[in-house]
Every structure is written in structure tokens, then in C-alpha cells.
Nucleic acid binder design. Structure first.
Lengths: 153, 153
DNA sequence: ATCTTTGCAAACTTTTTGCACCAAT
DNA sequence: ATTGGTGCAAAAAGTTTGCAAAGAT
């Protein structure tokens, strides 16, 4: 119920994980984690940079990338490719699939459980262990179902 | 049976499609299609450039990109993102999913039919029409199942 | 003759890296 | 005091674009 309490716990957990693996806690790292906790939207490195630079104007985007790498190495965040070269980042604890509409670019989140059957079949047939959420699923959302394709490429 | 015959037919079909939509047939375009027909491997723009430059040394990579765009616009080819920014291209008629191992980068092809159930469910639940093959599925192949992750990112 | 495609060089976008300085432990 | 993190600028990597010349119809 107490959302703020829960968010703080998540922040502490993430920082503890970072620390446990020899990482240091810095204002930028704290800010990145906080933003990822509070905005569960789909944030690119640039999105994160913009948000952080409100409070810490001198944070360079290369630091954001290094921070994200560090957090990823430690298991706190994960990234997903949505299209082109652009990647988005989210907390590892928020695992879900992304359905991206190739027309309007809208993103629909789908619980990973949805992919359980497929995952089992790929495992059984190919011995392949799917880490599904690493790429978005591309297609057409309900609204754009009949339009001409072109967007995400 | 007569593979060469079939390949020629595919080439002719592709060229006809291109022509029908107002595109012109050039040596580069012919070569791109031929390569995509004969090597059903997973070719990036650079791979294609290298192969083509054997025969047509002056073909510039930007031409390859424009050719691929043109062929894609006309429905002859499709591209898939395997990781990072890199995309690979194949004939639209060769629709399949790619399972990419995040450790050894090996690629396993899976017939699209495998994804039919999931596709149906996404359609029903979210009204989302999946064009699955646009992104690879990331995970671990049989051999790398237990190793530490790190590669594809 | 017309209008598309090409080659080249240069721009762009996203991400990575080298290095000297700074800060967390 | 150490060692890891940061800012900056510059380099990658992959793809796109403007333009004048060449080529397909």
C-alpha cells in the first residue's frame, strides 16, 4: 500500500546488490535506479540522461551508459532492443515482454508468463533457453491493424 | 528437384515484383537478390557488400542499403535485428524465427509455425498482430546453457 | 529524353573508449 | 590511500543523405 516505502526498499535492495559486488554508490547511480523504479516506462539512455540532468546538470551521457552497464552487470537492470539501435532499460525485477506497434510505436507490456508455453517448446525441441524479453515483439496494435506498415523498421 | 531452375524462378519473381512497382533492374539489385536466394544464411549489409564486391568491385555500401530498402519496400526482402544495431536481411519468402545464443552467437532457425499459438493468444488478448520474425529471440543454445552470460547484449 | 539509381563523401545516431581528474570507501 | 567513477572529447559502428554523374526504361 505504502508505495513510497516499497520504492525505497527497492532502491535499497538495488544499492545493496551493487555494493555487494564491489560497486560504489554515487549520486548518478542512485538517481538512475530511482528513476527506473518510479517511472516504469521504457526509458532509453537519453531519456534517463534528460531526467537526471534536471537535478544533476553535469552528468554526461557516457556516465549514464557506464552506470547502466554497471547495474546490468550486477543484475539490477536489463536492456531491451526496441528497434534500430535504440535500447531501453528497466529493472531486472520488472521482467515482461514488449509488444511494439510498427505503425504507431506504442508499447504494450505482456507478463512473461504469456511466453511460458513457447519457452518450454523451444527448450524441448532445440535445447534453447529463451530469455525472451531481450527483444521486443514487433507487429500491429489493435488500432493500427489495417494501416500500411512502415515505422519501427 | 532442379535447384538452379527454382532459384532462377525466384530471381525472376523478385525482379518482376520490383519492376511492377516502378523499380529498375540493375546489376547490383540482381546480385543482391541472387545472393539472398543462394545463401539463405543471415547476411548483414556488410556481408552482402563483400560478396557483391567480388564481382562488382565499385558497388558502394550505401547502394546496398538503398537496394535493400527498395527491395523491402516492394516486399521482396525483410530485415531482422539480431543484436546491437546490426540487422540481417533475407527474402520475404523465407520467413522464420531466429534463436540467437547470447554466448556463442550461433543462430538457429525455427519455422514460424512454431509461434502460431503465441501469435493467436496475443491476437486474442491484446488485439496485437505479431510479426514475430522482426526480432531475434535471445537465449542460450544447448551447448552454452550453463555458461556465464555476456555476449549479444 | 526522362527519371531512377549510383558512387562518393559527409552527416547522423547511438554507444564506446582513453585519459586525467575526482570521489567513495 | 586506494581504487573505482566521472567528465570530456574523440572514436566507433551502422546507417542515411545530398549531390552530380551514370544508367535503365
Amino acid at each position: 500500500m505504502d508505495k513510497e516505502r516499497l520504492d525505497n526498499d527497492r532502491l535499497d535492495d538495488a544499492l545493496a546488490m551493487l555494493k555487494k559486488k564491489g560497486g560504489r554508490i554515487t549520486p548518478t547511480r542512485r538517481a538512475v535506479i530511482q528513476i527506473l523504479i518510479s517511472e516504469s516506462t521504457h526509458l532509453s539512455a537519453e531519456d534517463l540522461a534528460k531526467r537526471i540532468q534536471h537535478r544533476l546538470p553535469d552528468v554526461h551521457i557516457s556516465t549514464i551508459y557506464r552506470t547502466l552497464d554497471a547495474l546490468e552487470a550486477v543484475g539490477v537492470v536489463d536492456h531491451v532492443h526496441l528497434g534500430h539501435g535504440r535500447a531501453i532499460y528497466h529493472l531486472s525485477s520488472d521482467i515482461h515482454q514488449h509488444l511494439v506497434c510498427e505503425v504507431c510505436s506504442s508499447v504494450t507490456e505482456v507478463p512473461e508468463s504469456f511466453f511460458a508455453t513457447l519457452k518450454g517448446e523451444l527448450q524441448e525441441t532445440f535445447g534453447f533457453t529463451m530469455r525472451a524479453h531481450h527483444f521486443a515483439v514487433i507487429g500491429r496494435c489493435r488500432n493500427c491493424a489495417v494501416t500500411v506498415r512502415s515505422e519501427i523498421s
